[in-house]
Structures are given as structure tokens and as C-alpha cells.
Write a protein that binds this DNA or RNA. Structure first.
Lengths: 150, 150
DNA sequence: ATCATGCGCCGAATGTGAATCGGTCTGAAG
DNA sequence: CTTCAGACCGATTCACATTCGGCGCATGAT
């Protein structure tokens, strides 16, 4: 996990379709060597998968909201309950007054309301507090170059 | 933008490395037809890009937090100021008491504190309220199949 | 109803790049 | 000094992306 690996990761985050020859050139290696490094990054689980990035608005998910979920009981193993709602893109257990924070995308505010209702129906949930996003400045992947301890 | 396109998107979100032949088989089309559809999805901007998904912990970003940012002035064009901090993965203008919500990943809580300090230094920011994530249930891409109006 | 047009699909070709492998070099350990 | 492991290079092989001509079907005009 050296600097070259980090640059390769950054390149692949920007565009995973570029040929290994270009990838190798970006770090001063041959295509074969770049290929081998990327293969090992996958093997080690540093690269989880290769996927396309879909525009949410284009597939009918124009409304974005974050929801703080309050609960009366331990929510530590309620992951399945939240995962059952496809509109929920992220679910985290958090420190603080609420117990779970979820990220939700829906087509309309009516559908958002419906999701809130279904969250409320989850066992142990005592309340929700939704925060609607008016404008997204940006969304980007984690930077492999930031914490560069080489 | 029919049902076939949505299934193709879902497939490519799971694995963008699979051959077009497999992709076509998943929707009952030939490899060439699947290729053509995907090409148009890219052209229309439905597919923004193809990228690898990197494990945050593997690149030294084990701490995740959401930060509510309060401000005294209009934050509508402060996108650049937030984008300048590489640890900030998302920044949204929100409705409610705070004005901006940001998602932050750092290696340690000390670095998180440093990011909060730098957010505080942004012009117009009057306060921050950080919520630390204890455990992430899941993070997944938007589902193209959810709002299926064909 | 017939004909023209355009769009989407198929199936085959062609070219490109992924994946593999033998060989070399360097650095570390014995 | 010798041995070994790891990483890189360069070439070879093979699979897949990409392109193309032709066909079928739907739509709209005459």
C-alpha cells in the first residue's frame, strides 16, 4: 500500500474504463505491472467492486433527505429492517441523542413521507426527524491521497 | 428509459466489469444491443461514469461523521470552500435550523477535530454540530428499479 | 390500404486491450 | 556469498468491445 497504489486508486475512481497502459503511464509502470497491482488491490478488498455512477434524478429520485431516527430500544441489529426499504441508501448507528441516521432518496416528497411512515413502523422506533436537502454542492468518493503516510 | 434500461443500470451498479454478452443475457438481448443501450445511457448522462469502489478503512479513513453547519450569512455559493477540504465527501444545503450538512471521513478523531476547525474558518460559518457514526449498517447506490414508471 | 421512414435488434467481422507467462533485476534474509 | 521472494518488463494469447450490414417492426403519410 504505497504511493503508487494510492495514485492508481485515485485514477480508477475517476475513470475505471481507461486501459491499463494509460494507468501504468500515470504512475511510471508498464501495463502488466499496473494490472498486477490493481489485481492485488481487488484481492485485498481495497477495491470492493467496479460500478457505474447513476444520476439519481435520471432514475426518478430527485428528493434527498437525511432522517434522524429516535428509538426506545437497542437498534444494533435492525440493519435488515432498514435495508428492506430500497429508498434508504445509507443507515448508520450514531452517537448522540438519536440512534440511527439514514439517507433517503425518493421521487417526490409524498414518497418521502411514505418512507418515514415505514421507518416509524420498524420495531423500537419512537420518532423521526427529517432534514430535506435543498441543493447538493457535491458528492465524491473518499480520497486515497489524503492520508498519505506511504 | 424503459424497464430494460433500469435492469441494465442495476446490473452495472453491481458489477461494471461483466461482459456485454452476460449483460444482454440478463435482459434477453444480444451483446450488441445491450452495448448500444449502455452507450446511450452514458450519452444521456444517466450513467455519469464508471469507477471503482474503495474501502475507506483501507485507505485510512476509519472515522465517519456528519456535521451540521450553522451560519450567519447566505451559504448558497460556498461550495468551493467546502470542496477545498478533501475529507468532506458530501456537502448539501438543507432546510431547517442549520444551513449546510456535510459528510466527513478522517483517519482519527483528532483529524476530525481539525476538519471541524477548518470548517469553522469558512466565511459565514457560526457553528458546527458533529454526529459521529459508531457503526455503518450499509451504504448502497440508488436503486433504478424502485420508482419504475417505465 | 399501401408505402416510406426510422428505430432497435441481431449476428458476424475486426480491432483492441485484458490476462498470462517466462525471464530479469533488486533487495533481504540466511 | 548465496539463496529466495517480490516486482517489473515485454511479448504472446485470447477474450471481449466495438462496429457494421441487414432485417423486422412500428409509426406516420399518401
Amino acid at each position: 500500500m504505497d504511493h503508487i497504489d494510492r495514485v492508481l486508486l485515485a485514477q480508477l475512481q475517476q475513470d475505471a474504463t481507461q486501459p491499463y497502459a494509460a494507468l501504468g503511464q500515470a504512475v511510471g509502470l508498464s501495463a502488466g505491472a499496473a494490472h498486477e497491482r490493481v489485481r492485488k488491490l481487488r484481492e485485498r478488498g481495497v477495491i470492493r467492486r467496479t460500478a457505474v455512477d447513476v444520476d439519481p434524478a435520471a432514475v426518478g429520485s430527485a428528493v434527498l433527505a437525511y432522517v434522524m431516527v429516535d428509538s426506545t430500544s437497542w437498534m444494533g441489529d435492525a440493519a435488515q429492517d432498514f435495508a428492506a426499504l430500497p429508498e434508504i441508501l445509507e443507515a448508520h448507528v450514531i452517537a448522540g441523542s438519536a440512534s440511527v441516521l439514514v439517507k433517503v432518496r425518493t421521487a417526490t416528497t409524498e414518497q418521502l413521507q411514505d418512507v418515514l411512515r415505514r421507518i416509524y413502523a420498524i420495531d423500537g422506533v419512537s420518532g423521526t426527524q427529517a432534514t430535506v436537502v435543498l441543493e447538493t454542492f457535491f458528492e465524491r468518493p473518499v480520497s486515497p491521497l489524503t492520508a498519505d503516510q506511504t
